[in-house]
Amino acid sequence: MRRGKGLKFVGDSRVIDKETRDKIPKDYSEYPGRTEAFWPNFLLKEWLVGSVFLIGFLCLVAAAPSPLEQQADPNNAAYIPLPDWYFLFLYELLKYNYASNDYIVIGTMVIPGLAFGALLLAPFLDKGPERRLTRRPIASSLMLLAVASVIWLTYESVASTDWEARAEYSVTNEAPQLEVDTSDPGYEVYQANCLSCHGDALQGNAPVGPPLVEITYEPEAIKEIAINGIGEMPAGLFQGTDEELDLLAEFIYSTVNQGEGGASETGDDTEE
């Protein structure tokens, strides 16, 4: 960088202009206005502001535990994806007709590309010397428009999301984990007929299938439900022989009720 091209800076600039290049740097008192030494005076104030900010931040963290949903299940076809809030505006943009399907490139590339490209190159698009926003109406109105659209799209996306339904996905609503004997012949039948809705460990698959871990049915009732359905579960989902149905009912019954038989035995063992 060549120095002394007539650049003028305000404040604490370290770029020296021609006149002062070979002289001793100016005393602090030479700068206009009431300046303050960064070290230690101003830094102390910054530290105070930072501490207050940190306390507020920790209050937020303590008041709102970070969310965690159930473990990723690529087979969960009913799950409605939702990005983090700061990408909601892009996600919402893709719902518009001219930004989706055949025009998806407009939604994913053209509009965001133009917006972020213009942001990146703002100093080269808005080259005038004026700094006040009223004196550069094109730049400031475009920026206001962009900010308003981002806020609007985010608002639209938040308003159209069913947050109560999403809370169902939380790991805190997850059914207790059961030990599943995958070598059981009934598990194969379960895999073929039930797993897609009730999960690989009977834990359910929100929102299509409820967990089976706490059902209280006898094997006969389980067979009945597998064939005729119950509630929102339609009839005819089970497709197999009667022997397979017996294996399935026995497998589900024994897996769900393993706690009662097993727990007391192990309890005795540990006491002795």
């Binding site: 949903e69 994806p81 983090d84 994913t108 790991v171």
Partner: peptide, 17 residues
């Protein structure tokens, strides 16, 4: 988790477009 997996799938589809 599910949120992570499916949001990433959408993000990667956007990259693919």
């Amino acid at each position: 988790d599910n949120k992570a997996f499916f949001a990433t799938q959408v993000g990667l589809e956007i990259a693919e477009s």
